[in-house]
Computed example of a mutant assay.
Amino acid sequence: MNPTDTAAAAPRRVAVVTGGSRGIGRAVAERLAHDGLIVAVNYASDSASAQETVKAITAAGGQAIALQADVADEHAVTAVFDRVEAEFGGVDVVVNCAGRMALSPIADLDLSVLDAVLRTNVRGTFVVAQQAARRLRAGGSFVAFSTSVVATQFPAYGAYTASKGAVEALTLTLARELRGRDVTVNTVAPGPTATDLFLDGKTDEQIEALAKTPPLERLGTPADIAHVVAFLTSREGHWVNGQILRANGGMA
């Protein structure tokens, strides 16, 4: 058989991207689809935005479906993975972009808000990671999301950094638990990135100051982060494992 025939017959890789309807998640979904993966775009509640993401992918020649699930609901997440495996034969890449942020001094934070942040960012990451660990095929990758604020430790980010610190602690543990599976586990920790989640509640002056913080003196873009995820989930990036990658233009 001609080697090119073998390559042509290889099944397409399949990705599940949580929080894939907007911001960094949408950029990741579109980039992975551009690289030839079939993408399941998970969303929590914004069906319209998820469908827009799917339409953008299909219009560019890719293949995608939108699937609803709260990432902290293990039954809903299991159903998403069941559907993807049934429809496409397996899962090769899982990227957990779903997240929640609340800004407040620790002394003033409503504990119900803290509970909501931890539910999405810690429990949600754990639930998605659990399914990834059970289902990823050999050669696959799991990518979680943290934040560079875990290192910079800006005021008012206490709840958010506490939740993302837990994600970072999980990363190498899971990578080691998957020894022998040929599956990588990494976490991307963006710096200031121009998404609705980042821009919400900030003044123009605050945004400008944060944009000047990295040596590159600009905000990151969702595409900047999607490029990093694309590398980590590619064949070329497969030697990177158990790492926290701070994609932040040179911040701490």
Rank of each mutant, 00 (worst) to 15 (best):
T4H: 11
T6K: 14
T6N: 10
A10Y: 07
P11A: 13
R13A: 08
T18C: 05
G19W: 03
S21R: 01
S21A: 15
R22Y: 00
G23C: 02
G25L: 11
G25S: 06
G25M: 07
A27Q: 01
V28H: 07
A29G: 09
A29H: 05
R31Q: 11
R31W: 03
A33R: 01
D35K: 06
D35H: 07
G36V: 06
L37R: 06
V39D: 04
V39Y: 05
V41C: 05
Y43F: 15
A44Y: 12
D46G: 07
S49L: 10
S49P: 11
Q51V: 07
E52N: 14
E52C: 11
A56T: 03
A56M: 10
A56V: 02
A60F: 02
A60Q: 03
G61M: 13
G62I: 03
G62R: 05
A64D: 03
I65W: 07
L67D: 04
Q68H: 11
D70I: 08
D70C: 10
D73W: 08
E74C: 10
A79F: 07
V84I: 08
V84R: 03
E85Q: 14
A86H: 11
G90D: 06
V91Q: 04
D92K: 09
V93E: 04
V93D: 02
V94R: 07
V95F: 13
V95H: 09
N96M: 06
A98I: 08
A98E: 09
A98L: 05
G99A: 13
G99H: 08
R100V: 09
M101H: 12
P105N: 09
A107Y: 01
D115V: 07
D115Q: 14
A116D: 15
A116N: 12
R119K: 14
N121C: 08
N121F: 06
V127E: 10
V128H: 07
A129M: 15
A138M: 04
A138C: 08
A138D: 14
G139M: 08
F145T: 01
S146M: 11
S146N: 09
T147F: 01
V150I: 15
V150D: 01
T152F: 10
F154I: 04
P155H: 04
P155Q: 06
A156V: 15
A156L: 13
Y157L: 00
T161M: 05
A162T: 12
S163K: 00
S163P: 10
A166L: 12
T171D: 02
T171Q: 07
L172W: 08
A175K: 11
L178H: 05
L178R: 03
R179K: 14
R179S: 12
G180M: 07
V185G: 03
T187N: 10
V188A: 02
A189W: 00
A189N: 12
T193C: 02
D196K: 13
F198N: 00
L199S: 06
D200A: 14
D200F: 04
G201C: 10
K202P: 02
I207Y: 00
K212F: 06
L216M: 15
L219Q: 06
P222A: 01
P222T: 05
A226H: 04
H227Q: 15
H227F: 10
A230V: 00
A230Y: 06
T233C: 12
S234G: 12
R235W: 00
R235I: 10
H238K: 11
V240Y: 00
G242W: 08
G242A: 01
Q243M: 13
L245N: 00
R246P: 04
G249W: 02
A252M: 11
A252L: 15
